Simulated scan of single mutants.
Amino acid sequence: MLNMLLQDKSSASQIEIEDLETLFNPLRNEIEGRIQEGQEEQDPQVFAKQDLTFASGEDLPRCWIDPNYRN
């Protein structure tokens, strides 16, 4: 199973995303992920995709967030 680590813009926490299909789907505004901190696996939480970035600070591609990205 492939996972992706993203970063929460407000807290700079690393978020592990397991459902990449939902991440890539522009019709879904939210995604479930787990904050990566501490020794124990954290419970899943829901995050707005617009509040996430790549670890580099780069925003997610518009085609993952905006269903009208081609217009």
Rank of each mutant, 00 (worst) to 15 (best):
Q14F: 03
D66F: 02
Q42D: 10
N29V: 09
E16S: 08
I65V: 14
T22A: 07
A55G: 04
D19I: 01
L20F: 04
Q42M: 09
I15R: 01
T53Y: 03
I65K: 12
E40P: 00
N25Y: 03
F47G: 00
R28T: 04
L5F: 14
N25F: 07
F54R: 14
Q14G: 00
M1V: 14
F24M: 14
N68I: 11
M1E: 15
Q14W: 07
I35T: 05
L2I: 14
P67T: 13
L6Q: 03
A48K: 14
N29D: 12
C63H: 15
C63S: 15
E30Q: 14
D59W: 11
A12Q: 15
E32P: 00
A48Q: 14
I31D: 02
L6R: 03
G38Q: 10
Y69A: 04
E41C: 06
Y69I: 06
Q14A: 02
I65E: 11
N3M: 07
L5A: 08
Y69D: 04
F47T: 00
W64I: 07
G57R: 12
Q42F: 01
N25R: 08
L2R: 13
C63T: 13
I31Y: 02
K9M: 13
L60W: 15
R28D: 11
E58Q: 12
S10D: 09
S56A: 13
S56E: 15
G38H: 04
L2H: 11
Y69V: 10
F24L: 12
E40H: 06
Q36R: 10
D19E: 14
Q42S: 06
N25V: 08
W64M: 13
R34D: 10
